[in-house]
């Protein structure tokens, strides 16, 4: 399996966020997206997750399931926990387990065949299983959200600042899970400004220019869509 992103360009609200981002990543590799805040790391992840439309560029997955889009191979672990406070931790997690379409691929052996309760135990929040999510602390909510990745097998994990709100012990657990996902033939694309110690890591560095030579970029930057001549 290989994810190929070719000259991705992204605009949000008419604002050019980044352009011509090109990379490839194969099974058993991690891609860490690094750079200062507000530079478009999250936008790149959301583009790959299909949540923000690309303005131009191509994204393809080799060796995936034929009639599925790239986002349908992915788990997205973002800033929002997607938890319903009125449901218990177990109800929250079991829902995703029965709702999400799993992706089984040759060459990708995931340990994401855990039951919901086992996943909670793995993340050491088993004791909260029958508590409404409203009662969970920020770290516990984060771990509950992470548990979703363990109960549905999907080969690509897209993670936006995965270690935020986690204590040191949970962060070690997280790194262990990420490492075993990679070793099992999965792909991880993570944005972070903290160092993450993972095997087989590539880095994608986002850097901000000095602001003087951005004329060429702004030239066809019109806030409009496809036609470049409004300015």
């Amino acid at each position: 399996m290989k994810l190929i992103c070719d000259s991705l360009t992204c605009e949000r609200g008419g604002r050019r966020v980044f352009e011509n981002v090109t990379f490839q990543i194969s099974s058993g590799e991690a891609l860490i997206v690094r750079g200062p805040n507000g530079v478009g790391k999250s936008s790149l992840l959301r583009v790959i997750a299909g949540l923000v439309a690309v303005r131009s560029g191509k994204m393809a997955l080799e060796g995936g399931i034929e009639d599925r889009t790239v986002p349908e191979h992915c788990h997205y672990f973002g800033h929002l926990d997607a938890l319903k406070p009125s449901l218990t931790a177990l109800e929250n997690l079991s829902f995703w387990r029965s709702f999400y379409e799993p992706v089984e691929l040759a060459g990708f052996s995931s340990d994401a065949t855990l039951g919901a309760s086992e996943a909670l135990e793995t993340l050491e929040i088993g004791h909260t299983a029958h508590l409404p999510a409203a009662f969970l602390s920020a770290g516990q909510r984060r771990r509950l959200s992470l548990a979703r990745l363990l109960v549905v097998p999907r080969p690509i994990w897209i993670m936006d600042e995965p270690s935020s709100a986690l204590d040191a012990a949970s962060e070690r657990t997280l790194l262990g899970l990420m490492a075993s996902h990679i070793n099992g033939g999965g792909i991880i694309i993570a944005a972070t400004h903290l160092p993450l110690d993972l095997p087989n890591t590539k880095y994608l560095e986002f850097s901000r220019g000095d602001g003087r030579d951005d004329e060429g970029l702004a030239e066809d930057y019109d806030g409009f869509g496809d036609s470049g001549d409004f300015l």
Partner: peptide, 14 residues
């Protein structure tokens, strides 16, 4: 949409 569930629903393959 506010709690991020909508993103996940759209990626679910359903």
């Amino acid at each position: 949409r506010e709690d991020g569930t909508l993103d996940l629903l759209l990626m679910s393959g359903r």
